[in-house]
Simulated scan of single mutants.
Amino acid sequence: MSHACIPVGSQGQTPEVPRSVFITGASGFIGQALVRRYRALGAQVRGMDLRADPANDVVAGDLTRPEVWAAHARGCELFINTAAVVSLAASWTLYREVSVRGVRNCLDVAIASGAKRFVQFSSIAALGWNYPDQADEHCDVVIGDDYRYGVAKGASEHVVLAAHAAGEIECTIVRPGDVYGPGSRAWLSEPLKMAKAGALILPNGGSGRWTPVYIDDLLDGVMLAAGLPQARGQIFHISAKESVSCQEFFCNHWRWAKRSGSPRSLPLWLAVSLSRGIWRINRLLKRQDEVTPDIMYMFARTGGISIEKARRLLGYEPKVSLNEGLQRSEQWLRDVGQLV
């Protein structure tokens, strides 16, 4: 077994490496990275995603029909659920089906498979967008009609913590910051496309807080959380040391797109009104589009998040600076032809 990829906490914490891991959403950006990292450690890794990938032992399925893929998870020691509705524009019905019932389905499969630990991927979106600086795991989760993705993530946490409290299976929840790095569609490829079209708009002069975490740092945090006994029954924020402004992060995409100056800006109230109008039109026309009020709220977040709990209990310490992470990301964009 290779030990090169085992993260060691700052106080010497070394997570147990499972013999076998099952990952939902195994073909996604984070899922693929987890598959590679656990395989490098010698673990047997299987997974599920919307499309099968036999070369990587990934079967086709979704969270709403566990009977299709449950047998593939049999015997796994660690079950990691990264699958989710990756959208800020979905219906409440879909969020309930996937983020609540679907997560309960995953728990049932993990328990029937004999898994020792269940790791749920939530998000800092569960905190909403209007929270204090250095928000920690004690902060409220968001409820209400807006910010559907965050409300759904908060609901998924409830399902998982209830299973843990009932003694059904040991569970851990991770809330990643804004994960980026080679392979990131959400925070590299899509904003770059928007920048090239001149359509990247940041509310309030780009003053909203962004919490970038490089993919390799996220993997370290997840593996510590998944393999240490002190992480049982806990929620952890896994992010970078500090937040930056949206302007500071996305001006890189603007520059990569060979545009001068900075991304365009509107007051938040106007950006929300315009995006709400576009969202309604797209729904009438049955067009898939991520221009929603929620993306504008996300770009207007009021605070950074605290990783002190992950530091204290797990010894988690992010290693890749924003500057280095962006350099690696830019190189990847060039390598895959998205930049020339």
Results as ranks from 00 to 15, higher is better:
G206A: 12
G208D: 13
W269A: 15
Q230F: 03
I278L: 05
W254P: 07
G261E: 02
L218C: 06
I238G: 01
Q230I: 08
P212R: 09
Y214F: 15
R255P: 00
G233T: 07
L274V: 13
L218Y: 04
N252F: 06
L219F: 09
T211P: 00
A226E: 11
L219C: 15
G227Y: 09
H253V: 02
D217G: 05
V213E: 06
S265G: 13
S275L: 00
D217P: 00
G227H: 07
S207F: 05
Q247L: 15
G221D: 08
I238P: 00
G277S: 13
S243K: 03
R264Y: 10
L228K: 06
L274S: 03
S265D: 14
R280K: 09
S265K: 10
W279I: 00
W279K: 01
R209I: 11
H237M: 01
D216E: 15
G221Q: 04
R276H: 10
I235R: 14
P267W: 08
R209V: 09
C251L: 01
P267G: 14
R259W: 03
R280C: 11
D217W: 05
A271Y: 08
S273C: 10
I238N: 02
Q230C: 11
A231T: 06
S260I: 00
V222K: 07
C251I: 04
E242Q: 07
P263W: 06
V222I: 15
P263M: 09
G261R: 02
R280A: 11
A240S: 15
A271H: 05
D220E: 07
I238T: 05
L219V: 10
P229F: 08
I215V: 13
T211L: 07
E242W: 01
W256N: 01
R259G: 09
P212V: 02
P212E: 09
R232A: 15
